[in-house]
Design a protein around this nucleic acid. Structure first.
Lengths: 123, 123
DNA sequence: TTACTATGCTACACTTAGTGTAGGTCAACC
DNA sequence: GGTTGACCTACACTAAGTGTAGCATAGTAA
């Protein structure tokens, strides 16, 4: 059994984040010690790793919650899960395109500055 | 003189966003009509366009506020302004790299799914 | 015994960049 | 006279946590 601090260190979350995930329903409420401190089993640590894994792909907490429920529900939900991951991938691709376009705008602005032409006068 | 609705349409902000920017100090409090409605001059429209221009590069509102102050202060602040834009550019590049790395993680996960190997068992 | 430090607890406020909603005012139109 | 439509203010809400206040408890040092 691990304390929340140990769990946090093991998984790479902050303590606050773990409590946050519990509050959000991503985790079952943790067992408590006599001192009312949260205790985590190896299985719960694995679950946290799983959450970390999804979170690092940029998936939103609410979506992870849905996803977790599907995993619980078994392999029947596999096609649906694959779709979610694919959607997430598309979202990332779109984000990257958006950023790239922002970058182009910025380049243009930078160029304008180098030419000493400010976007708008000083009023 | 334009109403807030006209200004919003002209510039491409929502009405709420314009009020928000005023509240945040990006805009001087607008003049008011007899009916207490905000009124915008062409110069203020230009200022809004300028804000839009920076916002579209992903610059944060607080930073735009600083930037606006510098523009007001004249060409002496030009080098500093160029630096801000360059920093912003670097931030965008970093963001893009981050997203790309998320994408790689996702690809890996997707592959794992296609191989019918789920990241974590069903507990 | 007392003090200090570390760790944990809860509950609340704060962040970003707005959006959405409730409730009110006003002018124009039918 | 009633009803849009555009505007006003103030407040709550969003995502994903972080930071803080105030508390309890355990272990260690003087």
């Amino acid at each position: 059994m691990y304390t929340i601090g140990q769990a946090a260190q093991k998984v790479g979350f902050s303590i606050g984040a773990i409590r946050f995930y519990e509050r959000k329903g991503l985790l079952e409420p943790a067992a408590r010690s006599e001192q009312n401190n949260r205790l985590y089993t190896d299985s719960e640590i694995n679950w946290l790793v799983f959450i970390k894994c999804l979170r690092e792909t940029g998936m939103r907490v609410e979506d992870i919650k849905q996803f977790a429920n599907m995993v619980m529900a078994g392999t029947a939900t596999l096609p649906e899960r694959i779709k979610i991951i694919q959607d997430q991938k598309q979202k990332l691709l779109d984000d990257i395109e958006g950023k790239k376009s922002q970058l182009v705008q910025l380049e243009r602005k930078l160029e304008r500055y180098y030419n000493d032409l400010v976007c708008v006068g000083t009023g």
